[in-house]
Simulated scan of single mutants.
Amino acid sequence: MEIKRKIVEGASELFHKYGVRSVSMDDIARHLSMSKKTVYQYYKDKDELVTIGMSLHMEKEKEEYQEIESKAHDAIEEMAMLSTCLRRDLRDINHSLLFDLQKYHPKAWQVWLNFKNDFIKNSISDNVKRGMEQGLFRKDVDPEVMAILRVEQVQMAFDDRIFPADKFDFREVQIDFFDHFIHGLVNEKGKKLLDKYLEQENNSKTITTTHEN
C-alpha cells in the first residue's frame, strides 16, 4: 500500500535525522500531514515502525552495496565508491540512532546486527580477498579479521561513551576509521591506484561545488 510505505519512509527519515527516542508518533503524523489515528491504522506502535523501517533501510543498503560491487573494476575502486556512499549516508544521520535501537528497540537492533554480522562482514571479506587476488592488498592480512575490524569500527563510532558528541563529530570519526582501514590494506601498487581514485573523487567534488556556487 502506498500510504503504508509513505508512513514508514517518513518515520525513518525522522529517526535517522533526530534519533529514535526523540521522535514521537505525534511527530510522525505531523511530519506526514496526517492524523495520528491514520498512522495507527497501519502500524500498531512506534516499535513496529522502527523495526520495519530499519528492515527496509537495510534492504536498500544491500542493493546499493551490490550495485557498487558489480560496477567497480577492482577492489580499490569498490572501496572508493563505498567511501563516497558512506559520506553521503552519514550526512543527515543522528549519532544516537544505534544507541536508541540497542536500548529501546531490540527487534530493530537485531535487524542491524544481522545486517552487520552477515551481509556487511561478508562483503568486506570478499572485497579483501578480491584485492589480494588482484595484487592490490597486502598478502599478510586475514580477510575475516579485517572484516570484523571494519564492522566493529562502524558501530564503535556511534558509541557516545567512546566518542562523546560534545568532543567528536561522529561523521568525521567514521571517515577517519575508513581512511585508516583502507590505507592499512593496500600495498605499494594499491596505494598508487587508491590515490588516483581519491584524486578523481576530489576533482568531482570541486566541480560539483563550483556548479552549486
Rank of each mutant, 00 (worst) to 15 (best):
L90C: 03
N127F: 00
R138Q: 15
K129E: 13
Q134Y: 03
W109T: 10
K107L: 07
Q102I: 12
D140H: 10
D126L: 08
I93Q: 15
S123N: 08
E144T: 06
Q110D: 15
K139N: 12
P143S: 00
F115L: 04
V128G: 01
N114D: 15
F115H: 09
L98C: 06
L101I: 05
E133G: 02
L98A: 05
L113V: 13
D89K: 11
P143E: 02
D140E: 14
N127P: 11
Q134R: 04
R130F: 03
K103A: 14
I120F: 00
L90A: 07
K129D: 12
F137R: 01
Q110H: 15
F119R: 05
D126S: 13
Q134N: 02
S125A: 10
Q102V: 08
V111H: 03
E133I: 06
P143R: 00
R130K: 09
L136F: 02
N122I: 08
Y104F: 13
W112I: 11
M132H: 01
D92Q: 11
L90F: 14
I93P: 09
L97M: 09
N127L: 08
V111S: 06
F115C: 08
D89T: 07
P143W: 00
Q134T: 04
R138K: 05
L90D: 03
L98S: 03
F137Y: 13
I124P: 06
K103G: 12
V128P: 04
N122L: 07
K139V: 10
Q110M: 09
P106K: 12
G135E: 04
N122C: 09
D140T: 05
H105L: 10
I124M: 03
D100W: 03
R138P: 08
I124H: 00
K103S: 13
K129L: 07
D118G: 11
A108G: 14
L90N: 04
G135R: 02
K116S: 14
K107F: 02
L136I: 02
P106M: 10
Q102E: 15
E144C: 00
V111P: 15
L97K: 09
W112A: 01
I93G: 14
Q110G: 13
